[in-house]
Write a protein that binds this DNA or RNA. Structure first.
Ligand code: ATP
Length: 734
DNA sequence: GAAATGCAACTTTTT
DNA sequence: GTTGCATTTC
């Protein structure tokens, strides 16, 4: 925020007329649709201040909904400087508070556990085992994904099932039962249960409408159906509702985000007044022109105007390099240059489509001693050693947590295996008792060995005793005692290579510190509050903006941020647009939006990189430059060819451009043709192979281009694996 | 029930 | 090239 802005009045004056109008409007539901960097978030923040100072709204009645906890904290912090204290939360956190307060109506006991993705997957797997589904033919991950998408659409497990989805539905049903038995919710449930609660209890709904009379929602383009319904319940007619978003920045379709929420907003709130902000304050005209051209390539969109007064000096520079290592070195060279010229490291960021690209960057930055932070990747709390500890804490807090118990029983090894757990589970089901009670009664469960029984008894006792320990001592002290009793250190040292074991033990130390830190900051909090808190945390929330480091993050994490200088690496066909499966590459427009989001984070300078070669898990990947490079306004673009790739370096010249265009188009068309060519075979089909002759299909694995078949060729005794994409494989007519 | 071995999938993005 | 998973072996 501007340093000169101290009073609400100055704050209002810092806005342009469009923004002012939007900030001051109070005539009913309001939707602000505007492009990148047009000040949407800023308007929302000013609006909150004005509501309190000009319209005498009690800040307690204002609820801001943001996309991440980080954005919520940011909003609170900015408002605090105007002495305004509002509630700012993500949809999930808001739903959690509602359920914590009133979930009892739905039979939820406190504390409510929150299952993350890993827990979800484990639960799906155990459901599939119980239903005797083969985990090879049905991918548990896909089933988990499917269940989440159902919840995004508020589809209950008892909805009618059709066709192939019948299997998924049966898993969903059992999954939900087990989740309920565990007194836990997954992410989708948080929203879905909050919706159910408010629908079922109109009085409660009214209570919340009175509590939060004014609602401000950011990043609305990435909300799902369930969240829109929750918003509708909270907002009612939406008399004091203000929603902002940019359909061109919708990048979470794969996670169930529904663009119709914003495109057809008037269907939920008929009296809506739509505001547009057309002036961009973030980027130079060069960056803006470049990216405007890119996003205009999307056909499925409504056009917007976006202009700026900021004259840029630097073109967008696109490097073509020979390898990922050269790419990383080039990025580092530039970073060092800019650093010398006075740009702080915290004002530079490297973005990529997939986290794996951060590896090479990291390696080279270490070499060069450039300080960096990586946002995202495998979250800290999902690392094995941390998850082990968390599961102990979870069973201490919530004895019904099935997935946590499973982990606790097996770590460290105590002679309790899969069999015993299944037996106890069955016993619990037959006698309609909680899993934790079945554990206590394991003596009367048939089929559990004496060794297992002993093991179970000792864990149960351990967990029980630590219930008190965590009450009577500080958490970190109690945790230390717990780890001692478990001989966890020995367990780690035994099960991992020394180096790995060391990082694991280091991580545990970090966790301990975090735990005591939290307890210090929240002296009245229960252990369950801490667990809930970390369950709802995201990687970007822990990102330290202040530190003097270059930030490395995925394009998705970059949403809503801004930096002076942005380096976007891996701009290659099939990498940015990421295409893993040629057959259903329909999300190209979302990929383009993602690219747009990344590029529009840059204030002054934007560097793009594409590499001819890259090493991907053991294999070599050769790629052509991304089609998105071609879609940028060529006038703003400067090509630097470090790879001797003439095809690319000359494309900006008129002839070269034609050639390059054909070059990429050919690549795309070729992929599509390729996809068409792949035949589908079923086990038992007779096939003919150009080299190996005729045979019969035994089975298959992989998908798309990587689809493989197991074929038993005539006259051979052992089947062979052949690639489906091998053009010489064809079906024989009987 | 747990260790040893072999093999497949893995790297899409995350509240 | 690795990791986690499944099968085999003890
Ligand atoms: N009227 C204004 N005068 C000066 N600077 C402004 C004004 N409005 C917004 N800005 C600045 O422009 C930048 C972008 O604003 P903001 O983050 O609110 O935009 P946004 O529309 O939410 O962006 P995006 O959708 O790309 O995340 C910020 O640095 C903000 O301070």
């Amino acid at each position: 925020m501007n340093n000169a802005v101290h009073t609400p009045c100055q704050l209002l004056e810092s806005l342009n007329d469009e923004q002012k109008a939007a900030a001051l409007y109070s005539g009913g539901p309001q939707l602000i649709i505007a492009g990148a960097g047009s000040g949407k978030t800023r308007v929302l923040m000013v609006k909150a201040v004005l509501l309190c100072t000009r319209f005498s709204v009690d800040p307690q009645h204002i609820l801001c909904i943001t996309f991440t906890n980080k954005a919520a904290d940011e909003m609170k912090k900015r408002l605090a400087s105007f002495n305004v204290t509002v509630t700012a939360k993500t949809f999930h956190a808001a739903a959690m508070s509602i359920l914590n307060a009133h979930g009892g109506y739905l039979g939820l006991k406190r504390p409510i556990g929150v299952y993350d993705e890993q827990d979800q997957l484990e639960l799906v797997k155990s459901c599939m085992d119980e239903l005797h589904y083969d985990k090879k033919s049905i991918n548990p991950g896909s089933a988990a994904e499917w269940i989440s998408r159902q919840k995004d659409e508020l589809i209950e497990p008892d909805a009618e099932a059709v066709g192939t989805e019948r299997i998924y539905h049966s898993i969903y049903r059992l999954y939900q039962d087990k989740l309920t038995a565990s007194n836990a919710l997954d992410f989708g449930d948080l929203i879905m249960k909050a919706v159910a609660l408010l629908k079922q209890y109109p009085d409660l709904c009214r209570h919340y409408r009175e509590k939060y009379t004014h609602l401000l929602v950011d990043e609305y383009q990435d909300t799902n159906t369930a969240q829109a319904v929750l918003l509708k319940l909270l907002a009612g007619e939406g008399k004091n509702l203000c929603v902002v978003g940019d359909p061109d920045q919708s990048i979470y379709g794969w996670r169930g985000a529904n663009l119709n929420n914003i495109l057809y907003f008037e269907q939920s709130f008929p009296d809506v007044k739509i505001f547009k902000l057309e002036r961009n304050y973030r980027s130079t005209d060069i960056i803006l022109n470049a990216t405007n051209a890119l996003i205009k390539t999307n056909r499925n969109r409504r056009d917007k105007t976006l202009w700026t007064d900021l004259k840029g000096i630097h073109n967008v520079i696109s490097y073509r390099v020979g390898s990922d290592r050269v790419e990383a070195r080039q990025v580092c060279d530039l970073i060092e240059q800019h650093m010398e010229n006075g740009t702080p490291l915290s004002e530079m960021a490297v973005f990529y489509r997939v986290h794996s690209l951060s590896r090479m960057m990291e390696e080279v930055m270490l070499e060069r001693a450039i300080p960096y932070t990586i946002v995202g990747g495998l979250p800290f709390y999902q690392r094995k050693e941390i998850k082990d500890i968390l599961c102990y804490l979870r069973v201490i807090v919530n004895p019904d947590d099935l997935i946590a118990w499973k982990r606790v029983l097996g770590v460290p090894k105590r002679g309790i295996g899969e069999k015993s757990i299944i037996k106890i589970n069955e016993f619990a089901a037959e006698n309609v008792i909680p899993f934790s009670d079945a554990l206590i009664q394991c003596g009367s469960v048939p089929g559990v060995t004496a060794k297992a029984r002993q093991g179970i008894a000792s864990v149960v006792e351990l967990v029980n005793s630590f219930k008190d320990e965590f009450q009577s001592q500080s958490w970190s002290t109690a945790l230390e005692a717990l780890l001692d009793q478990l001989c966890y250190q020995d367990y780690v040292l035994q099960n991992d290579l020394p180096e790995k074991a060391e990082t694991r033990l280091d991580n545990i130390e970090v966790f301990k510190d975090a735990l005591s830190e939290y307890q210090k900051e929240h002296p009245d909090a229960a252990l369950a509050d801490y667990l809930e808190n970390i369950a709802l945390r995201s990687s970007i929330d822990d990102w330290d903006t202040a530190s003097e480091r270059v930030s490395l993050m995925s394009l998705h994490s970059a949403k809503g941020l801004e930096f002076n200088i942005v380096y976007l690496i891996g701009m290659e066909e099939r990498m940015l647009p990421l295409i893993r499966d040629i057959e259903n590459a329909e999300d190209i427009e979302e990929e383009r939006r993602l690219c747009y989001v990344g590029m529009t984070r840059a204030r002054e300078q934007l560097y793009l990189f594409s590499s001819n070669w890259r090493s991907g898990y053991g294999r070599d990947i050769f790629s052509k430059p991304s089609r998105f490079l071609m879609e940028l306004d060529p006038q703003t673009l400067e090509i630097r060819d470090l790879a001797g790739d003439r095809e690319y370096s000359q494309w900006n010249k008129s002839k070269g451009k034609q050639r390059f265009k054909r070059f990429v188009e050919d690549a795309v068309a070729c992929d599509e043709q390729f996809a068409d060519m792949i035949d589908e075979f079923a086990p038992g089909d007779r096939v003919y192979h150009y080299d190996l002759g005729s045979g019969v299909i035994m089975g298959g694995s992989g998908a798309g281009e990587k689809k493989k078949y197991i074929v038993l060729f005539d006259g051979e005794s052992k089947p062979r694996v052949v690639f489906a994409s091998y053009a010489g494989l064809s079906k024989m007519d009987d």
